[in-house]
C-alpha cells in the first residue's frame, strides 16, 4: 500500500484499545458457551426435575446393595410366608405393600419387588448407558468422516447407515441371543448377556447418531475457521478432532441423553421377550413379563415396574429436551 493514502487522525487509531461501543459486549468476564447453557438450563424447572430424577436413579443403581440392605430384602430371597398359600398371591392389599415390603411381593415366588426394581435399575441404566456410549462413539467417528470427506466415503457410510436403519433389529437381536453360547470371551452368565445387549443395541443405534453428526459436519466444514486451520498447516486429524468435534459436542450430548431412554425401552422389550438378561437377575422388562401371568389377580406387580420404566424414560426425555433448548446453537449466536 502506498503510505500516504489515509489520514490516521480522522479515524480511530487502530492501536488504541477497542472503541467503547465495541467493549459493551464484553462486560461479562469470559463466559464460555458452556456457562451460558448452564445458566439457561437452570431456568428450565421441568428439565431440572427430569435431571434430578436421573441423578437420583443413578445413585440408586450405584448404591443398590446399600439401599436394599437398609430398606428391603435380598432380591432373590423367596419370602413364601408373605404369599397366600392357596392362590400364591401376595397377602394384603396392593400386592402386599407394607412398611417391610415397600412395593409389595412377587406372586408365586414372594421376592421383594422393591429390591428387584432397585437392582433392575442397575441393569437398565448400565445397558442403556453403555449402549449409548457405543452408539455415540461409532456414530461420531463415522458421521464426522462421512461429512468431512464426502465423495465415495460418504456414499459408503451413508448407505451402510440406511441399511442398518431399515434392519429389523429386535428380531435380529432375539435370534442372535438365542444362538450365542452362555460363555463368551471369559464372560459368564448375565455378563455375556449384558455385553451382547450393549454391543448390539449400540451397534444398531450408531446410525442415528451418525446421521446427525454427518449433517452437522457437512455444514460446519464450510465454516471459514476450517479453511483458516488448513491455511495454517493443520492436518486432517487436527481439523476433525480439534476444530469440528468441539462444535459437535452439543448435538451429540443432546442426542445421547435422548437415546438412553430409547435404549432402556429396547432393553426392557428384549427382557420382556426373553432375550435380555437371564433370570434370576432382576430387570424391569423381565419383571413385566413375570407380571403378565398374574396381572388379572395382582395388577400391582405390573404397575410398579411399568411405572418405573415410564417415569425413568419421561425423566430422561424431559432432561434431554431441556438440554437441547439450553444448548441450541441458534440461541448462542
Amino acid at each position: 500500500m502506498t503510505a500516504p493514502l489515509h489520514d490516521t487522525t480522522a479515524e480511530a487509531a487502530p492501536t488504541a484499545p477497542a472503541d467503547p461501543a465495541e467493549t459493551g459486549a464484553t462486560k461479562v468476564e469470559g463466559r464460555s458457551l458452556k456457562q451460558i447453557a448452564w445458566n439457561r438450563l437452570k431456568q428450565d424447572k421441568v428439565a431440572l426435575a427430569g435431571g434430578a430424577f436421573v441423578l437420583f436413579l443413578t445413585l440408586v443403581a450405584v448404591f443398590a446393595p446399600l439401599i436394599v440392605g437398609l430398606l428391603g430384602h435380598p432380591p432373590n430371597q423367596f419370602n413364601q410366608d408373605k404369599l397366600d398359600p392357596l392362590t400364591n398371591l401376595p397377602q394384603g392389599a396392593w400386592g402386599g405393600v407394607s412398611s417391610d415390603f415397600l412395593f409389595g411381593v412377587e406372586p408365586n415366588k414372594g421376592r421383594d419387588v422393591f429390591s428387584r426394581i432397585v437392582y433392575g435399575a442397575r441393569i437398565s441404566l448400565l445397558v442403556a448407558f453403555l449402549a449409548a456410549v457405543v452408539a455415540v462413539a461409532l456414530g461420531t467417528l463415522f458421521g464426522i468422516i462421512a461429512g468431512y470427506f464426502g465423495g465415495w466415503i460418504d456414499a459408503l457410510i451413508s448407505r451402510t447407515m440406511d441399511v442398518l436403519l431399515s434392519f429389523p433389529q429386535l428380531l435380529f437381536i432375539i435370534s442372535l441371543v438365542s444362538v450365542l453360547p452362555d460363555d463368551l470371551l471369559g464372560l459368564t452368565g448375565s455378563g455375556v448377556r449384558i455385553a451382547v445387549l450393549v454391543l448390539v443395541i449400540g451397534f444398531f443405534g450408531w446410525p442415528y447418531v451418525g446421521r446427525i453428526v454427518r449433517g452437522q459436519t457437512l455444514s460446519l466444514r464450510e465454516r471459514e475457521y476450517v479453511e483458516a486451520a488448513r491455511s495454517l498447516g493443520g492436518g486432517r486429524r487436527h481439523i476433525l478432532f480439534r476444530e469440528l468435534l468441539p462444535n459437535l459436542v452439543a448435538p451429540i450430548l443432546v442426542y445421547a441423553t435422548l437415546m438412553i431412554p430409547t435404549n432402556i425401552l429396547t432393553e426392557a422389550a428384549l427382557s420382556f421377550l426373553g432375550a435380555g438378561v437371564r433370570p434370576p437377575t432382576a430387570s424391569w422388562g423381565g419383571m413385566l413379563r413375570d407380571a403378565l401371568e398374574t396381572y388379572e389377580h395382582d395388577p400391582m406387580f405390573m404397575v410398579f415396574p411399568g411405572a418405573t420404566i415410564f417415569v425413568t424414560v419421561l425423566a430422561f426425555n424431559l432432561f434431554g429436551d431441556g438440554l437441547r433448548d439450553a444448548l441450541d446453537p441458534k440461541g448462542t449466536r
Binding site: L33, Y225, E227, A228, A229, L232, E243, N247
Partner: peptide, 30 residues
C-alpha cells in the same frame, strides 16, 4: 509465509476456542 484473512468474522473464528487458542494456533500447528 502465506496467510489469509477471511471475509466473515462470524465464521472464521471457531466459537468453541478461546481467543488465546485461536491466535496461538499458528504456533502450535507449525
Amino acid at each position: 509465509d502465506v496467510q489469509m484473512i477471511f471475509q466473515d468474522p462470524y465464521s472464521s473464528l471457531n466459537p468453541r476456542h478461546t481467543i488465546g487458542t485461536i491466535v496461538g494456533a499458528p504456533f502450535r500447528l507449525q
